[in-house]
Amino acid sequence: TLATPAVRRLAMENNIKLSEVVGSGKDGRILKEDILNYLEKQTG
């Protein structure tokens, strides 16, 4: 899974598996926005 260290840390802090997040960046890269959108969906 393609993600920057900052995105990986954000995911780890929120107990998110990067494999569950759909990346919207180039080549499927997971962006910070993708993590935040995933969190919004989870908290509903």
Rank of each mutant, 00 (worst) to 15 (best):
T43G: 15
V7R: 01
Y38A: 14
V22L: 11
K41L: 10
V22Q: 13
V21F: 04
K32E: 15
Y38R: 13
I35L: 11
L39F: 07
K32S: 09
N14S: 15
V7A: 15
E33P: 08
I16W: 00
L2S: 06
D27P: 01
K26Y: 07
R9L: 11
P5A: 14
E40C: 12
I16A: 03
G44V: 11
L10T: 04
T4Y: 05
T43F: 07
Q42K: 14
D34L: 00
A6V: 08
V22R: 13
T4D: 14
K41S: 12
K41Y: 09
I30S: 01
R9M: 11
S24K: 05
G44Y: 08
R9H: 05
A6R: 09
R8P: 00
A6H: 09
V22F: 05
Q42D: 13
Y38T: 11
N14L: 05
R29D: 08
G28H: 06
L2H: 12
T1K: 11
Q42N: 15
I30H: 02
Q42T: 14
I30D: 02
S19T: 13
G23C: 02
M12L: 10
A3N: 04
V7L: 05
L18S: 02
K17V: 09
I16L: 05
N15W: 01
S24L: 01
G23I: 00
L36S: 11
Q42G: 15
E40W: 08
Y38I: 11
S24Y: 15
R29A: 14
G23E: 01
T43Y: 04
R8N: 07
L2K: 14
V22D: 09
K26F: 04
K17R: 12
K17I: 11
G28M: 02
E33C: 12
N15P: 00
L2R: 05
L39W: 06
L10H: 00
I16H: 02
T4K: 05
L2M: 11
L39A: 15
R8Y: 06
N37S: 13
K26C: 07
I35V: 15
D27G: 12
T43S: 13
K26N: 12
D27V: 01
S24T: 13
G25M: 01
I16F: 00
G44Q: 15
K32C: 06
K32R: 14
D27Y: 07
I35A: 05
Y38W: 08
S19F: 05
P5F: 10
N15H: 08
A11D: 00
D27A: 07
D27T: 04
D34E: 01
E20N: 13
S19G: 11
Q42E: 14
S19P: 07
I16K: 03
R8E: 13
I35N: 03
I16C: 07
K41N: 12
